[in-house]
Design a binder for these strands. Structure first.
Lengths: 339, 339
DNA sequence: CCGGGGAATGAAAACGTTTGCAGTCATTTT
DNA sequence: AAAATGACTGCAAACGTTTTCATTCCCCGG
């Protein structure tokens, strides 16, 4: 459309009859310039439709007012909620979110981090703990602060805000034990490159071990977090080793898939089989039967991560570790063990 | 951590014993420099852990390799899917996604667009048609190309990739009419600042009008796209004017909420009430009964928008309007009208 | 009336890249 | 053997801000 180049600060300065320096100050440090000059500059800027050139500013100030977020995928509802909160919260403070995904591939994560660093993010938000250690080296060298979401770093070294997956998982399993269940199966997520999944599975094992109950290897399935695979995992467990009365799922998508599979096979939930999920996504309360699950406060986590990052960027310090509660929500998908 | 500043291109150049220009070319236009020099530069760069300074590059080249996306909210599953596809597709071509949201507030959208422009996005992806016209002026002045997703611009002026909501909605309603339904209710989304919602509602009216069936005002509810409101809307319709046998919902979240409400009241779906949704989110096939709905190819839309934007940024031209199919998916939530 | 002291302004030097242009070679071509 | 070609390389000028340091301007107290 318009072929002439956009107005720049020097145009504004000329229009207002002031120097570059004054124009710059009038717009970004108003208190440093006299009232009337300030207004004049602002008017000219508005009139010309002046839009500051972020890259130039970034170059001069060495900060981009941009924060990167690196999610496994962002279409998992739980991550979507966190992304939303993150973007919203950052925007409130004039920051913008640079979003990237890595699909649970450490190499991709490293590569994409490099790109994010090139883009000059002032800070970076990551999910979980499992990653190429090289990535931390990169961040340290670049001097870019980062926050880990979802998990709690056992070493206490990294700044993180998350929940205690293992303990929550123990609690969910306890709940089933208390209902009299003794035959368990687990539909877990992929454990490779995913500490949350591993911790949740470990939690189940721990709770069962405490009562000397064994979790048979053929009673554990791994699946990706999409509905078709979730159903498939349930089908597989049923085929390989039927007879379990409780199914613990690595997340709600897996659980809802299991629910669907049961519905289509006439397995009654919770009369024949009790199912628990993890995450408490929106849909968990919408399906029938409503899902018993562990609530992971995803949006809150996003908000906290943003707040912590903003605080650090502003020079304030925050606790290295912030734990958020992961509450067990008992709904209709769990009941007393049959017989 | 490290207090000394990051290595810059001049450090690399010095280390490799070449000029700035050659170092730059060795890294970004390899074919212009001799093999051995190129390798030497690369080695030094790797050794120093050199990371190019994006802002400086953006300043010099006048492009940021960054594309902005402005979603209403991104935690709606359908938008999450598009975001994911967008981010992924852009990343494949070395672009990064700058994500912002406006929560259906035109003023916020304008404001946030300004920020995105400041950040120097090379292109912008927007959702739907309803917005402050000033926004287009802004984009035109900045000379930033944009793509509209979801809707099809009737004027054919804007570049867009979307589906024909109204027609699809007519089709869904037809489906119910064909099943013998005559008493309709609609659980619509908020129609303010949302052309998709309006078109879908209009489609229902159109289909009914064609058979001289009236849609009573008290048989229309508006709700936001979250489960609690969805249930509330259904409850309200039932209270205000019971007796309808078909419920058309503005999207799947609304439909699943209705499903949940019906389940808790003992209303059988589809025996007593047929329900159709819109979007075909993942969960639509996972709930019981599985939802009859219109499939909106959200991920594909994200991919196409990315591809179109990349093409345009590369100087190729694309069709101004690209329509994607919105297919009716008949599942278990619709059946013959009772009696 | 002078000098002192802020407050407001301006000149110019960063910030770290890319790139047009002009050189320097080693090959070819005539 | 001279000249022309072409492949590499380097110099230096952008790109559009912010910010340091000086300077100017005004007002006030002495």
């Amino acid at each position: 459309m318009t072929r002439r180049t956009n107005p720049k600060l020097s145009d504004v300065a000329r229009g207002a009859g002031v120097s570059l320096a004054t124009a710059s100050r009038a717009l970004s440090e108003p208190e440093l310039v006299r009232g009337d000059t300030r207004e004049r500059v602002r008017e000219v800027a508005a009139m010309l439709g002046y839009v500051p050139h972020g890259a130039a500013r970034a170059l001069a100030t060495r900060e981009s007012r941009t924060v990167g977020a690196l999610f496994p995928p962002v279409d998992n509802p739980i991550f979507a909620a966190a992304t939303q909160a993150l973007a919203h919260e950052l925007a409130m403070s004039g920051y913008t979110l640079l979003l990237a995904t890595h699909e649970y591939d450490p190499a991709a994560e490293l590569q994409v981090t490099r790109t994010l660093l090139e883009r000059g993010v002032d800070g970076l938000v990551l999910v979980g703990l499992d990653r190429d250690p090289e990535l931390y080296r990169l961040l340290a060298q670049a001097g870019v602060p980062y926050e880990l979401m979802w998990s709690l770093d056992p070493s206490g070294f990294h700044y993180c805000v998350g929940v205690a997956h293992r303990i929550a998982s123990v609690r969910a399993t306890q709940h089933l034990l208390d209902l009299g269940h003794r035959e368990f199966a687990v539909s877990a997520g992929r454990t490779a490159h995913n500490d949350r999944t591993r911790e949740r599975l470990a939690g189940v094992r721990e709770a069962l071990a405490a009562r000397a109950i064994e979790l048979r290897p053929d009673r554990v399935a791994q699946a990706e977090f999409v509905l078709p695979q979730a159903r498939e995992a349930c089908r597989e467990l049923l085929a390989r080793s039927p007879g379990f009365t409780a199914l613990v799922c690595g997340n709600d998508v897996l659980a809802i898939g299991a629910l669907a599979e049961c519905a289509s096979r006439g397995i009654r939930v919770p009369e024949d089989l009790s199912i628990v999920g993890f995450d408490d996504i929106d849909m968990a309360s919408g399906v029938t039967p409503a899902l018993t699950t562990v609530r992971v406060p995803a949006a809150e986590m996003g908000r906290r991560a943003a707040a912590r990052m903003l605080a650090r960027l502003a020079g304030r310090d925050v606790e290295r570790t912030e734990e958020l509660p992961a509450e067990l929500i008992v709904r209709a998908s769990t009941g007393p063990a049959p017989r």
